[in-house]
Amino acid sequence: MGIPIYPVHLEDPKLQGFYDGLAAGELRITADTETGEWVWYPPEIVTGRPDATLEWRTVAPIGSAYTFTTVVRSLLPGDHKAEVPFTVVLFEPDEAPGVRIPGVLVDADGIEPACGMRLRLKPVRAGDHIIAGFAPAQ
């Protein structure tokens, strides 16, 4: 299985916290500073509360796959023929039910991807940057 190589584009620098977490080997997502509820993806405005503020918090890097797909023909802009196939999962952390984090399935040769499969964060290098990878958990 391959790894997609495509740049991380952060239009809003506040989104950088996710990648700071990956660089530290951690999974960080955003929570409402007042209510403590997870708010993901970090929106420009929290629903119904335009003055709300968010902070990055670390969650345990263990969870399960909500769903997945193996991309055989990438539709990302540019030529990605050399990188396919790769498998994308939507990862749900055990500590943040309902939050879904897209990532690449890694270290899974010979393992059929499946909804509900147990996964653990394993950040991976994709060209000159680090992306979210998830490996099968024992």
Binding site: Y6, L10, L15, Y41, I101, P102, A126, A132
Partner: peptide, 21 residues
């Protein structure tokens, strides 16, 4: 912005891939 930040870098992009998932 969220697709560009979190989805496209891991290859989760465009309707055929969304609907496949």
């Amino acid at each position: 912005p969220h697709k560009a930040a979190f989805e496209m870098p891991v290859g989760f992009f465009a309707q055929p891939t969304y609907f496949a998932s």
